[in-house]
């Protein structure tokens, strides 16, 4: 789930906050774009599709493709449309799907 990121921050300075993604702690730039910050932290994939379970990660970064979906406080959100806040609890959406339906 976490690999060495190919994304690099040109201005890595600035305050960071602790955020949990799928059970692991990450230090992300406060107020940064959540999808970007997760990419920089090496998170991939962001989710698995409910149809086939295929891995997905951000594609458009402009709120149009919905491949960056994550679950924040029980609500599915587009990570590329969210800003990082302290203590965010983030999960992969649909994680507990039982595959029965």
């Amino acid at each position: 789930m976490k690999t060495a990121s190919t994304f690099r921050e040109l201005e890595p300075e600035g305050p960071r906050v602790r955020v949990r993604f799928a059970g692991r702690d990450l230090l992300l730039r406060e107020g940064g774009n959540l999808a970007a910050e997760l990419l920089a932290a090496g998170v991939t994939p962001f989710r698995r599709t409910p149809v086939s379970g295929a891995p997905r990660a951000p594609f458009c970064m402009m709120g149009a493709c919905f491949d960056c979906l994550v679950e924040i406080d029980g609500v599915t959100r587009q990570a590329c449309m969210c800003e990082v806040g302290p203590g965010m609890e983030i999960a992969m959406p649909f994680a507990e799907r039982d595959g029965d339906a």
Binding site: T6, E9, E11
Partner: peptide, 20 residues
């Protein structure tokens, strides 16, 4: 994962100062 639009890379740069 890893396939993005070129525009997305540009948004990462503009909005987050990130390069790939």
């Amino acid at each position: 994962p890893g396939v993005m639009t070129a525009g997305a890379a540009q948004i990462l740069l503009k909005q987050s100062g990130m390069v790939c």
